[in-house]
Design a protein around this nucleic acid. Structure first.
Lengths: 346, 346
DNA sequence: CTGAAAGCGCTTACAG
DNA sequence: CTGAAAGCGCTTACAG
């Protein structure tokens, strides 16, 4: 029960293997009649090109690597799925590689994946895409790579991102429009560039609106739920508390929500809370969270498109290889008018 | 800048390519001195076997497929990571394939992945591993496969699971030991076999303890947080409510927790809640959830081991290919003595 | 214990 | 527009 090979197809179609190869790969210079015959035989025989033979002779692997810092995160799942599906469409395959920067052999890991599997390209996510050592290894391996939401250095590689600064401004303005003046902010992991951008957007919107930023309302987290528990308690545990909390991601917003419940503070009546990311838990939380939807899957898909583009290798600095994807402000139940504002209007 | 090939190593080591091949693959019949020389040259040249050439000539791909129903779930992440890491150790690679049974072309998807990539084996997770159509396609493709937590049919393939029935009994006994008699139960998706096993375990423990199971306390969910919101309200919205709720997974336990907060019912003082799975949110919830840790990564790793075992193909029905992995009852803050029990002892 | 020969199934580089 | 030849870098099947 041997697999059918290109020779079998060629013989049956009455052409040379080379012609079958041309048809399979959609190359030019094949007479339409011939193409049709070949295609019909391919279907009849249920022929599938042997990817190993193809890779061996063409020295392309049709494999793309997705390097992830924390493969268990919701962020990783979304990115992975987006990349996976787009690879499918482009007849590529995705290799997911967790990279633990805390482990001693991580450099070897990346290198052996790239060289061992002969990856045709790599997608780097935060915070890996911002680590100069990672960039160096990938560059040394000589394969094209795309960074998702990188910090600075636009000339290093193509990049896909969203305007976090603008999104944070939009979110802050949403709170301001609801009458909030005293807004607490919980920052994310300082390792991630997005933490700073979100914070800057918040600050910019506050000052633009003529509202000051109270330093005692600025808290540091690391994007994990646990990290925001303390900050939320400090923010809410005093009489002089903010009327709204802008957490830099949904997990931390959830921590604020839990803390509010613990203190018996009604959300959104007495306190508005908003997050960032639109994690699944933001939807199912009670009350559901107002947040920013980041187009994670789309960003991954766009990365695949770049890597597969034959021009990418030579002109990674072209502007079409630096894409800004649209975000979305999703208003749900966790934000409402600032306390007292109902009366003002009534 | 060509890659170094087996010939380069052979030439430099003064042996034939075949001998290098033997050393690389750890075969017998190589003189120790020769082996050492070859190994040294391999290191010197930083030689990496070309996997495509190897696959082409050996007609093995060294690729394992992990088929997932919902690749975005926390369950999927854990399983994937476990499989990924073990593949790494065994010099295999993992291909993750989301399979959406709701889509029309899912059969074609599975088939083209197996045959197109020439997978050496497949790991099937619930509920895919319980779908006869999936089993048929994989069987027809002629590759060995392992099922994780399958329902019945032990002779179909090797399997890795945990004793969900026993775990549910343990959890129920934990509640009973705390003095709870009136226990509500929220079932999971009836599509998953584990839903029934957990329910059966609960029932068995209750009746064994001489406690009846109140039908009005038995609720149906589907493992999602959202699905358990209604059941939790019905359970807690009446004066005649249970003193404990056993949810079939953590997401649903979280829904119960949220509902309790909404109704102002103190957990665990007035109500104990327990889940199942040990999802990340179970740890970070407030109060943190008592739950069952399911060894998901270990189950995936064990699956890889089976698939890689040369004997698996011929004796998948051997008992060592049907593994039961240990679970763990993790007591946290969401369960406590039944209301009134403190007084009884005091 | 070791090696020479043939072949896996494609694509590349040329010719025509 | 089409094809014959050579080769990609391994392993298989034999010999010795």
């Amino acid at each position: 029960m041997k697999d059918v090979s290109i020779k079998d197809v060629a013989a049956r179609a009455g052409v040379s293997p080379k012609t079958v190869s041309r048809v399979i790969n959609g190359e030019q210079h094949v007479r339409p009649e011939v193409r049709d015959v070949v295609l019909r035989v391919v279907a009849e025989l249920d022929y599938r090109p042997n990817i190993f033979a193809r890779s061996l002779s063409s020295s392309r692997s049709y494999l793309l690597g997705l390097f992830l810092d924390d493969p268990s995160s919701g962020y990783a799942s979304d990115v992975q799925l987006g990349a996976l599906l787009r690879c499918r469409e482009r007849s590529y395959h995705l290799i997911v590689e967790p990279v633990d920067l805390a482990k001693a052999n991580w450099e070897h890991q990346i290198e052996s994946s790239i060289r061992g599997l002969r990856l045709d390209g790599a997608i780097l996510t935060p915070p890996l895409c911002d680590d100069p050592r990672v960039i160096e290894i990938v560059t040394a391996a000589g394969i094209p790579f795309v960074r998702i939401s990188p910090r600075g250095d636009p000339e290093v590689s193509g990049a896909v991102e969203m305007d976090e600064f603008a999104a944070a401004i939009d979110m802050t303005r949403h709170l301001i429009d609801l009458g909030h003046c005293e807004i607490g902010f919980i920052m994310g992991d300082p390792q991630h560039d997005s933490s700073r951008k979100r914070y800057d957007g918040f600050r910019y919107a506050m000052t633009s609106a003529g509202l000051g930023v109270k330093e005692s309302f600025m808290m540091q987290g690391d994007f994990s739920m646990r990290s925001a528990l303390g900050p939320a308690e400090r923010l809410l545990g005093t009489p002089d508390r903010p009327t709204a909390i802008f957490a830099s991601n949904d997990d931390m917003a959830l921590a604020a929500l839990i803390t509010a419940m613990k203190f018996g503070i009604a959300v959104p009546e007495a306190l508005s809370i908003c997050g960032f990311d639109d994690a699944p838990s933001a939807r199912t939380a009670w009350p559901s969270l107002t947040t920013i939807r980041q187009p994670k899957a789309e960003m991954a898909a766009a990365s695949v498109d770049m890597l597969v583009d034959p021009f990418y290798r030579t002109r990674a600095d072209d502007e079409r290889f630096h894409r800004l994807l649209p975000y979305e402000l999703i208003k749900r139940q966790s934000t409402g008018r600032a306390p007292g504002m109902d009366n003002v209007e009534a």
